[in-house]
Design a protein around this nucleic acid. Sequence first.
DNA 1: ATGAAAGCGCTAACAC
DNA 2: GTGTTAGCGCTTTCAT
Lengths: 339, 339
Amino acid sequence: MSSSSVTIKDIAKMLGISKSTVSRALSEHTDVNAETRQRVIEVARKLNYAPNTIALNLKQQRTNIIGVIIPETVNRFFAKAIGGIQRIANLAGYNVMICQSDESSTTEKNNLQSLIAAHVDGVIISVSSETDHTDHFDALLQRNIPVVFFDRISESLQTSQVVTDNYEIAFEGTEHLIAQGRNKIAIVAGPLNLYVSKHRFQGYADALKKHNLPLRDEYIIHSNFHNSDIEAYTKQLINLPERPDAVFAINDYAAIEMMYHFKKHGIRIPEDIAMLGFNNENICKFVEPPLSSIELSSYDLGTTAAELLLRQIKGSRELEKKLVKSKLVIRESTAGKKS
Amino acid sequence: MSSSSVTIKDIAKMLGISKSTVSRALSEHTDVNAETRQRVIEVARKLNYAPNTIALNLKQQRTNIIGVIIPETVNRFFAKAIGGIQRIANLAGYNVMICQSDESSTTEKNNLQSLIAAHVDGVIISVSSETDHTDHFDALLQRNIPVVFFDRISESLQTSQVVTDNYEIAFEGTEHLIAQGRNKIAIVAGPLNLYVSKHRFQGYADALKKHNLPLRDEYIIHSNFHNSDIEAYTKQLINLPERPDAVFAINDYAAIEMMYHFKKHGIRIPEDIAMLGFNNENICKFVEPPLSSIELSSYDLGTTAAELLLRQIKGSRELEKKLVKSKLVIRESTAGKKS
DNA sequence: ATGAAAGCGCTAACAC
DNA sequence: GTGTTAGCGCTTTCAT
């Protein structure tokens, strides 16, 4: 309480001048006698004065806070994106308020309410895997709150967005597997209501088609991002009459767990089955065999999203769509087939 | 702008009554004519009225925001802790503002300034590994801002804190290795200015002493949490005249990377060297061999810290110190020595 | 160049 | 039970 409760009023009283003069002296850009200003600044420093942000907020009707809604912080992809967002936001003098939807549509809705109530100046969102309708985001548009979607975007909403080249990279990854002599490629796909999963799946499917490989239902596994059933899915694949010779997994953890179960069953990686992951976690380098994966620059996704949002907050009404490139990182798990 | 700019003044005008009556009608607990209240509530709903939080904040001089400073969100330990903090905070109607120090003392200082400027109602902190003096935290105490440290606490400051049983669990882990027939146990320790590292190291050292094993300098590796030099450290251990027969690592990622390098050199785990990690990441189950580790309940650490903080925000002046128990999870990487 | 006063949206002490 | 008024800390016309 002590030092924080110093107000311009105190300074004014102390110097026998008015609040307004103090305010002006402190805010640089209005005419005020150089000497007066000097004295004000001196006293302000001595009293350890700091302007009351809340009062400023009320006056200006903004908070300098950017709201963020992501599925989970424990998901490394989003943890990194947060880092990117914070970096840009902080540089611009904004704080960041993070909410987790926990992949639940209901929680997402509540998060949104909290952020609106907190009067954030803008919101960055990556939708939960459960979200299939996006009406609740309308609340933002109605209030003219700037919003940017990233990675898991809402296609039905007219907003700025930042995505990765999901389709292209999935296509490339699948082609890589084919080039390694694989022609029975299974995929662990995410929920298809999600923008990212849908496009990745499409890239996979189109690559198969281009190379005249059939798209087989039994090779398509619809997993969530929680990897709770990987063991069961692995057994399912193992027991197939025509066992796949490659698996393209939704994320590295799923891939690593699958490898573990495959190896338990005496299946060799990559000789029998090649494995390709998604995210390029550090751990990929140190599993056996080292896991090929797709490097998503989630940090860049975050910085880009923050930049777009700030531009909108500053008044731009232009809706921008940005693409952040990802890249295939090849390791032993997708080495060529020994035939 | 449209629907958000409805104020009690608008409602008052519309009903031909005063602002205060509207305020009272909306805030339940004051006497106000039942019929008036009914009409106010009705109009409020029709106009989609939402109170302006900023004005409330100014009035009450609080923000309902809890500030959090942690080293990194990409660190799963902290990502989980955030989850715990948010859960408790949200239930109590608080928002959470997260800052990352990136393990830098300077950034930590800036984070603190931001949070103070944002007038957060309280702060939860886990200090950066670089921080060895804690003067900058005094700013909080001076302003009577409630603060709780967790995991990486500041011992010199009189505040509430939540820690794990670092000493005990490190002691237990080391004894476990000894029980498996290991007597040349190396440790990958963190920076010793950190509370956690110091106590874990002490547990390790005391366990050795209890069993009459020497504490050998060449078995002690001081790593940071970034695992940037694990390969070099591993080689160092391998080239020792008396190679260790067990390694207790600061975290699972370091342990897994070490295993990888050991195996590259033809060293068998656990036959030649046993490995024990820290954090019990999901991945532990799926590496080869599955990695024994120590399960830290970081989520619980987070919830407990948030509970303590809220209690202080509500006015409690009691400084509490809480302990969250961790537990040893034994897997194959620390199986008994084949002698 | 400076002071007085209004107002951002809300609550609460004080009248009646 | 309801209206009037003041005030939270600050900025910003409008006078002077």
